[in-house]
Every structure is written in structure tokens, then in C-alpha cells.
Amino acid sequence: MLPDTCKELIRFEDVAFRFPHTRPSRPFILKDCSFGIRENQVVGLLGSNGAGKSTVLRLAAGIYGPTSGQVLRSVKVHPMFGVGTGFHNELTGYQNALLYGSYLGISTTAILDAMPNIIEFSGLGDAFTEPLYRYSRGMRARLGFSVVAELHPEFLILDEVFSGGDRDFREKSKRRMFELVDQCRGMFLASHNTALLQKVCTDLIWIEHGVLRAYGEPREVISQWENSAL
């Protein structure tokens, strides 16, 4: 834990990470990574596929533990990766909302109180009481995000969360996400969408082959990243 007096909410100190069975050509997914995220910062992660973005987010969320170094947190983090993961096909939308809410750490009473909002936000109507095996992929995404939208997060960690549902629902979830960001003490997200990152983030981190290449003002980092691709 970080001391309360420290302004950084999350701090990576010389963090290295490897999976048990990695390619010999790239034994470490992340190497000597050090940076911090302060109060009210919205930090975006930029990098090509396989650069180590998701690993950094999972380390920040405490899902993975570092192989060496340490990740310090002074805030309760709420990761949102693969919204809707863990749904049961045989259960109804209602039952899955209850279960998914408890995965996210929301109490049963709080989910039940929020259920009318969840039903309304999802726009699933009567399908909410039907088993999930009758749902399309888009409907599942709607259900998952509607539960997530009821969170009151202190610090959000997102990995390409706006990808599910139809166009209208994506816009609706984006708006809700921006509302959540306003309530948060900070946010850490990864996306390939540079326009979105530039719009949302106060700072960007560029990571490549597990090495932190740049950390700073979004326009500058994006320009460095684009130049490197040329």
C-alpha cells in the first residue's frame, strides 16, 4: 500500500512480469517498468498488439502479481475487462446480472436496488427474464455493461470496453462511462483508438515489447508512436 500522504494512487516500481511458459525469444512480457498515476489523472496505454498493455492493466488491477518489483495501490481499483465474462448460459438475464454484480463486489442488496436501472439501461425488455442461451452477443454486452454502469468506482481500469452492442448502445455506454470517469479519482485505460485516448486522457503511456517507451502529454506521445511506425 502507498502511504496516504502520497499523491500517487498507483505506483509501478521496477516491475517485471513473465508467464510460466513464454517464448524463448521474449521471456519477459514486461521489463523494468516504473511509473505512477496521480489523483485525477486519466492515463491511457498505447502500443501495438502484444506490446504488454493488457498485462500492465492486469498488474495495476492486482489480477496478476509481478514477477519482480512491486505494484503499490492507495485506492480501490475496479477493473473492467471483457465485460460479461462469467455469465451462465442457463441462467436468465436477471440472475446473471445478480451474479455478475457480486463478481464485481457489489452487494446483493445494492444490485437488487439497482435492478430497475439495470433493466432500463440495458433496453432488453422482456428478454431480461429469458435464459442467456437465447441472447445474441450484442445482448450479452448490453447486459454486462448495464451492471457495470451501476458501479461507483474509485479508480477505473478499462481495456477496450466500448466494443459491444449496436451503435446506439455503444454511444449510450460511452456517455455513461464518461459520467463514471467524472466520479472517479483516476482512470487507467488501453485502447487502439488514438482519437478516443486523446479526447479522454490527461496523459499517455506508450509501451512496446514490454518496455515503457514514453509517458507524457497525449499529443506528444501519439506523435512519437506514429513516427516510430514509419
Partner: peptide
């Protein structure tokens, strides 16, 4: 409460 919801899910999906 997570355990309770998981138990319900397990029982329901087991006989669905």
C-alpha cells in the same frame, strides 16, 4: 453474498 449467488447459479444451471 458472492458465494450465495454462485451456489444458486450452480444449482439452477445444474438442472436447467
Amino acid at each position: 453474498s458472492l458465494i450465495g449467488n454462485l451456489v444458486q447459479a450452480e444449482l439452477r444451471s445444474g438442472v436447467a
